[in-house]
Nucleic acid binder design. Structure first.
Length: 811
DNA sequence: AGCACGCCGACT
DNA sequence: GTCGGCGTGCTC
């Protein structure tokens, strides 16, 4: 047989991480292409697979191959570009073929086998009971799956099926089926020309009004979607038209349209400021160069980056190209989506986790079919099958959410660069606080740096006051709010404007501590303190890692003293304090606890935009991607919460978050005021953010990174082992370290000793890690791959787990 | 991952 | 004497 397909089977194990060969059935020869999804027999079972490549010329095979049973999609899900990209992802993250492939397509594309049973035409078997009689009728009518039959007829159905299968009265067929399929509606379509239809409508206007209405609609619209019209397919009027040959019923696929239309702002194309125009020119130049160039767009908050993106994408479309715009999940708000849909309408597809599986499948399919040429989406949208890709925009490019924390550990920013190079397109990394990595790449001449240092319409940057909370404490102030913060809040609210209060910690208090012995209440499963929550008159302790909950102990569990007190402020406590002090203010709290419910986030944003809120209080979710024109005051309750984390990016994240929070103030006509409360007023991250002085921050931070050899002066990899038993977790990390040291050495890599992770135990699992610094991936990747292989298999058998995050963001 | 093949303890 | 425990090994 001629034609062999090399297929990756959908079985998640490293042992099967290689192509398997299958025979191409005659009717698919010449039509089956790389990227097609197929259904194949594998071992004693069936599974779906992905065609990597095809060998048309394969002559007489040494062994007889099993055949492909079915091709699951009309067009290959993977374009040639995506197949090539999957090799890059595999090489860069050391994941399997399957992991790389499946991260690129919607999860809805997963076929399961369904066995259906059908009565063989001819002599029926002896039907001994009424139930058997009915079962036989059912099987004769159409093929039936096992589960519904047993549900309907009881366990006897299984016995009868078995009997009839062996006697040959019933046959079994295995079919592949996706759990999420295309949505199908019944439509009535005309089978006569418009004139005939209108004449027929006129003739029926008196005696058959419903038929007349349908005929008129058919003449006008060429189709009637019955469900939308509230008419059943069995309606006599419909049946009559079909019988008279005027119309036929058809099943038609329809797209599930996500709610992108909501909050659609009809924003006209805006006149660009000189800085915006210069930025747009730089992007268009990079596109015209067709060399996969990258541009860093450093634009202060309120400088109008989105408008630049929109106009650059317009230029793509005008040239017949396509574009992808990546936005962090947290910023992918209806507001942001609305700006794209109002500008590009149906040419935009939206891809993010808020969509249902079916919506995501349909949006993706619109892209694959070339019907949508612009994609707006979160991280995984970087794999969208846009053809003629001319531009990739990565908005808020400093955001850590572009790195996938699960396997495969890819970084969408890096994939953006790959796709730009592959397509001879351009990539834009936009941010008010570009990362140290972007800065470093620009300094080395790998990226072009463009600045938009002013806000649109020359609005001023907010005035920032730093309040030293140590000083306030010395003066006897023990409240959450300093004088400056109180003045700012009151001034804003009294003038009918809005205020925003930021605190990066949810719950009521960070932890509870016994004043008798100094012991805090710990989570029994994790190595961290429990957080105090107070809501709706109730009070409890909660773990922010594993969701464990317990009551607050009356007395200390260690020393028995009734001296358990809350410490450290959370958003619930600030909300409480606001209510106490200003009972008539309308305060809205926004954090994970208040926005968990679907749609809650959007409702909250709408309430703020509608002016139903005086003070919006929240965690970092209020700092990003939202544009509230009536906010004139921003307060930061405690700038230090992020600064004290044991992470080499703590300063960068503080600087970035503060800059963004400050930037929420004064985005429209009103001037902005800002107060930052801190115990470390002299820290360079806080100082630089307050003075809007990016250069100063970068200079200091760069010196630290270089001195301690952290990114961007190297790359980090983190091997991670976790197990219920501490010794197994430690052992796996130690073995990985030993293995890797055997294979690489300085200067290619610096292997740090195996050590417990920041949180030694989480969800009942002990966690150990090995951190490696290296600068050239190609020189170390083989060593990583084999060291990992040496440990991971055994760890899994022991009931633990391992991971290897290459190019890791934090350790 | 499944599923079978294959060698040793407690039962009809 | 069997039924069944789960330790290796294979899947085009």
């Amino acid at each position: 047989m001629a034609g062999v397909a090399h297929v990756i089977v959908d079985v998640r194990t490293r042992q099967l991480d290689r192509p398997f060969d299958y025979a191409i059935p005659p009717r698919w020869q010449g039509r089956l292409a790389p990227g097609h999804r197929v259904y194949v027999p594998f071992g004693r079972q069936y599974c779906q697979g992905y065609v990597l490549s095809i060998d048309e010329t394969a002559s007489g095979p040494a062994k007889t191959l099993k055949p492909i049973l079915a091709v699951l999609d009309e067009i290959p899900l993977f374009t040639p570009e995506l197949l090539q990209l999957h090799e890059f992802v595999r090489d860069r993250t050391l994941c399997t073929h399957l992991e790389a492939l499946q991260s690129m397509i919607p999860g809805a594309y997963r076929a399961h086998s369904v066995r259906r049973y059908r009565a063989v035409p001819g002599d029926p078997p002896a039907l001994l009971s009424a139930a058997a009689e009915r079962l036989w009728q059912e099987l004769a009518a159409r093929p039936q799956a096992f589960e519904p039959l047993v549900r309907k007829f009881g366990p006897d159905a299984a016995l009868l099926l078995e009997l009839w299968l062996s006697s040959g009265h019933v046959e079994e067929r295995v079919e592949a089926e996706d759990a999420v399929r295309a949505q199908v509606v019944t439509v009535l379509v005309p089978s006569a020309d418009a004139q005939t239809l209108q004449a027929a409508a006129a003739a029926r206007a008196r005696r058959a009004k419903k038929q007349a209405v349908l005929l008129t609609a058919l003449a006008r619209d060429k189709e009637v979607r019955l469900r939308e019209a509230g008419i059943r397919p069995s309606d006599p009027a419909v049946q009559a038209l079909v019988e008279q040959g005027l119309a036929v019923l058809q099943q038609q696929e329809v797209y599930r349209a996500p709610v992108a239309a909501a909050l659609r702002e009809h924003q006209p194309k805006r006149e660009l400021t000189p800085a915006q125009a210069a930025a747009l020119r730089a992007i268009l130049q990079a596109m015209a160069a067709a060399a996969g160039q990258g541009v860093v767009l450093h634009g202060v908050t309120g400088s109008g980056k989105t408008e630049v993106y929109l106009q650059a994408i317009e230029a793509c479309l005008a040239e017949g190209g396509g574009a992808i715009a990546l936005v962090p999940e947290i910023a992918l708000t209806p507001q942001m989506v609305g700006r794209f849909t109002s500008r590009f309408g149906q040419r935009v597809a939206v891809l993010h986790s808020g969509l249902s599986a079916g919506e995501r499948r349909d949006e993706w399919l619109r892209v694959r079919r070339g019907e949508a040429r612009v994609v707006v989406g979160a991280r995984s949208a970087i794999f969208a099958p846009v053809e003629q890709l001319r531009l990739v925009v990565v908005d808020e490019a400093h955001e850590s959410s572009y790195k996938q924390e699960e396997r495969p550990h890819y970084d969408a920013r890096e994939i953006a660069g790959w796709r730009a190079r592959h397509n001879h397109a351009a990539v834009v990394y936009g941010s008010a606080t570009p990362s140290m990595e972007l800065l470093h790449a620009a300094e080395q001449g790998k990226l072009t740096w463009v600045s938009m240092p002013f806000r649109i319409e020359n609005r001023p940057m907010p005035a920032v006051t730093i309040v030293d909370m140590r000083e306030a404490l010395r003066q006897g102030s023990r409240g959450l709010f300093s004088e400056a913060l109180i003045h700012g809040l009151e001034a804003a609210v009294e003038q009918g404007q809005q205020a925003l209060l930021f605190l990066n910690r949810r719950g009521y208090a960070a932890f509870v501590l016994c004043r008798g012995c100094g012991e805090s209440v710990q989570c029994p499963n994790c190595d961290i303190s429990l957080t105090l929550h107070r809501h709706g008159g109730e009070e409890w302790l909660q773990c922010h890692y594993c969701e464990y909950r317990q009551a607050v102990p009356e007395v200390c569990e260690r020393c028995g003293e009734p001296a358990v007190r809350p410490f450290g402020v959370g958003t619930q406590q600030v909300e409480h304090a606001l209510h106490e002090r200003w009972p008539h203010w309308r305060v809205l709290r926004m954090d994970v606890d208040t926005t968990r419910r679907k749609g809650a986030h959007r409702e909250a944003v709408e309430r703020v935009l509608n002016g139903e809120v005086d003070v919006l209080l929240g965690t970092q979710m209020i700092a990003k991607g939202l544009d509230f024109p009536n906010v004139s005051f921003v307060g930061v309750i405690a700038a230090d919460t992020m600064l004290n984390l044991p992470d080499f990016r703590a300063a960068e994240r503080t600087f970035s978050l503060l800059t963004q929070v400050i930037g929420r103030a004064g985005r429209a006509e009103i001037a902005g005021q800002t107060v930052i409360q801190t115990y470390r007023p002299d820290h360079y991250a806080i100082q630089a953010a307050a003075r809007h002085d990016f250069a100063a921050f970068y200079q200091t931070e760069q010196a630290y990174r270089q001195a301690f050899q952290y990114p961007p002066y190297c790359e980090l990899a983190v091997f991670f082992a976790s197990h219920e038993q501490e010794s197994y977790a430690r052992g796996a990390a130690a073995r990985f370290e030993r293995e890797l040291r055997r294979l690489v050495a300085a200067p290619d890599a610096v292997v740090l000793p195996a050590a417990p992770s920041g949180i030694r135990r989480a969800k009942g699992q002990y966690r150990f890690q090995v951190v490696v610094k290296y600068s050239q991936w190609n020189r170390v990747k083989n060593a990583f791959a084999s060291s990992y292989a040496a440990v991971s298999e055994r760890m899994r058998k022991l009931g633990g787990s391992c991971s290897l995050d290459v190019n890791a963001l934090h350790i």
